[in-house]
Amino acid sequence: MLLHSPSTRTAVKAALIAVLALLLGVPLLAVVLAAFAGSWNGVWPSDPTFAHLADALSADNLASISVSLQTAFIASIVAVAVGAWAALAARSAGGRAAKAIDAAFHLPAAVPSVVVGLGLLAAFSRPPLTLNGTATIVVIAQTTLVLAFSYSTVAGAAEVLDPALEQVAGSLGAGSLRVLLTVRLPLLLPSIGAALGLAFALCMGELGATIMVYPASWRTLPVSIFALADRGSLFLAAADTLVLIASTVAVLALIARLRGRTTVR
């Protein structure tokens, strides 16, 4: 519709495919291939093997996976709960208070993860609350980092919510708690599910703040992958990355299925 000349169209399509391949296709393919490569000394990998994958699923790594999953679960649920609560509170407060809440909850997105990690170290390394060296501080770090995304996802949906629905519910005699439980939350459920999925995926891949605060006993998968890559074990790192993405996608699919079941259409 923009290009009418077939030759230009072909050229632009070729350029598009080339850019997409170079930008995303080749890197993603490389990681997948490397995960199964015994060696890679030519254009294509050789000696296909499952050894890296087996390594990635060894007991040591399974612990990392489990740590990552637990951390991401708790952090994303807390972040979405707090974010959704704040979004609803901002909406009912309205006016200047809503703007203040909005600004405050968007703020964590602007702060680098490393600074968040350093801040947690500074705040929780001495009494009254010594969390340094515990799993809790990792959870807090990831919660902080995804709080803004959770908030803005739900707030965006709350903003376009038709106020007439709530007013009608109120006019039918429903108290504000009933309106919240029977009208607002069900209508916001899709966005809450979306926020949960996004927060979980971000937590699973989080490195900056985690690497600042993690104790040796609570090492997430990205930290393990970094250690491998730093040592030069790129194929193992690739296999671990595949496992990380696979487990993330599995959980996201689960969330999507739950959402599909609860969404009102």
């Binding site: 995303l24 490389a30 490397a34 999925g197 995926a201 992958i225 890559a229 790129l234 194929f235 990355t241």
Partner: peptide
Amino acid sequence: LLEAVVSFPSFIIPLAFGI
């Protein structure tokens, strides 16, 4: 794919570049 990449860990790209 472009939409999915946003939820992948950012280090997948430098890892692939290294490989």
